[in-house]
Write a protein that binds this DNA or RNA. Structure first.
Lengths: 126, 126
DNA sequence: ATATACCTTGAAGTTTACTCTAAGTCAATA
DNA sequence: TATTGACTTAGAGTAAACTTCAAGGTATAT
């Protein structure tokens, strides 16, 4: 079992964010100690790893919450989760390709600016 | 010269968003017709292309506004803009690599779920 | 000429994802 | 035992990027 502080260190999320995610049903049902403090299990840590994967590939918290709900429903939602993840994967790939295309344009601009700068400094030194 | 409607079609931005970007100094100084309607020049269109590149690679509107301000100041800001774009480029590449790593984990999960689903359906058919 | 559709402005409202505050509880240490 | 620091909650506040609204002006087709 991990304290909220330990989970912060492992996930990079703040305690505020962890409590927020709990409220938003991304990871509800975190158990409490006798004193009412959060205790995260290894299973919770795995769920958090998944949550971070989905979040860092651009899924909204709402969609993550729905995915985690399906996960809690067990094996009968395996197909649905599989399809959902596959669709997400394709959307992310498309997004990355789009980003690459825009980045290529930025790279062109950098090259163009570099050349223009060279000319500009040459003129100035004359 | 293009009307706001034409610019929407070409850029995929809404008229609301174009007016918002003007207010936020991403592209101020758009000229007006006699009746007060916006008229976008070819130069404005080029600026908008740059704005979209930066936005779609994840730059904040605030940072874009600063970049566009430098652009309006002319050639003496070439070096600064060059460096700024280069830094942005590297940040985007790092972000894309990070995304790729998270996506690889998602792919692993999809494979794992697919296998688990196969087993599950096999058991059910028995 | 008038109806309709589109444009203008400033300002208020929305969504997402936090982030902070206040008031109080719990745990560990001097 | 007292104090320090971390934890709890509900709820308010924030920042970014739109998005909508209200009130009015403009352009054009009938």
């Amino acid at each position: 079992m991990y304290t909220i502080h330990e989970v912060c260190e492992r996930t990079g999320l703040t305690a505020h964010t962890l409590r927020y995610y709990e409220k938003e049903k991304l990871l509800p049902n975190v158990s409490r100690s006798a004193g009412g403090f959060r205790q995260y299990s290894d299973e919770d840590m795995e769920s958090l790893a998944m949550i971070c994967c989905l979040k860092n590939t651009g899924m909204s918290l709402q969609d993550i919450a729905r995915f985690m709900e399906l996960a809690r429903e067990g094996d009968q939602t395996l197909r649905e989760r599989c399809e959902l993840l596959e669709r997400h994967r394709e959307a992310v790939l498309a997004r990355m390709e789009e980003m690459q295309r825009y980045l290529d344009k930025v790279t062109c601009k950098v090259d163009y600016f570099t050349e223009k700068l060279r000319e500009f400094e040459e003129n100035r030194s004359k």
